[in-house]
Computed example of a mutant assay.
Amino acid sequence: MKSTRVELGPKALLLCCDDKAKVLVGDPGVPVSTGEQEKNTISPVDETLVACQHDMTKSSVCPSAYLECDTPTDIVGSLVRGQVHMIVNDSVTQI
């Protein structure tokens, strides 16, 4: 892959993608539990800790990181240089 990228030079574009963890999205103002049970939680003494179950959220988003790799001048050059782009995908409407 690297040798082809160097050979083609500016005629080719190499993108590296990494999807990050799915982030649950619920209703505004409604706290959602992470699903961790039997864990200690910091909360005010005079309040009751209440949250919806983690599987009761309406949607989720998945942030993706894309690296638009710069073209190295030779085969020993690094492909891990370039412009990074972050995109947030809605898991319901986008694949």
Rank of each mutant, 00 (worst) to 15 (best):
T4Q: 07
R5F: 08
R5P: 00
V6G: 00
E7V: 00
L8F: 10
G9I: 08
A12L: 07
L14F: 03
L14Q: 04
L15P: 01
L15C: 05
C16Y: 09
C16I: 11
C16E: 13
D18W: 13
D18I: 10
D18Y: 14
D19L: 09
K20R: 15
A21L: 11
V23N: 06
V23R: 08
L24A: 14
L24M: 10
V25P: 01
D27S: 07
P28H: 15
G29S: 11
G29E: 12
G29R: 09
V30G: 00
V30E: 08
P31W: 03
V32M: 02
V32A: 02
V32L: 03
S33G: 07
T34W: 02
T34F: 04
G35V: 05
G35Q: 06
G35I: 04
E36M: 06
E36D: 07
Q37P: 00
Q37F: 03
E38G: 10
K39C: 05
K39F: 02
T41F: 12
T41K: 14
I42E: 10
I42S: 12
P44I: 13
D46P: 01
D46N: 14
D46L: 13
E47N: 12
E47T: 13
E47D: 12
E47Q: 15
E47R: 15
L49W: 12
L49V: 07
A51V: 01
A51K: 01
C52V: 05
C52R: 14
C52W: 07
C52H: 10
H54N: 14
H54I: 05
T57I: 06
T57H: 03
K58A: 07
S59K: 08
S60H: 08
S60M: 08
C62V: 14
P63K: 05
P63M: 10
P63I: 05
A65S: 12
A65Y: 12
A65N: 05
A65K: 13
E68A: 15
C69R: 09
C69Y: 07
C69K: 06
D70S: 11
D70R: 05
T71Y: 06
T71H: 12
P72A: 00
T73S: 11
T73K: 13
T73H: 06
T73F: 04
T73D: 09
D74I: 10
V76D: 12
G77H: 02
G77N: 01
G77W: 01
S78A: 08
L79F: 04
L79K: 02
G82K: 01
Q83A: 14
Q83S: 15
Q83Y: 13
V84I: 14
H85I: 11
M86F: 10
I87F: 11
V88D: 01
V88P: 00
N89S: 13
N89L: 09
N89F: 15
D90K: 11
D90Q: 09
D90P: 04
S91R: 11
Q94L: 00
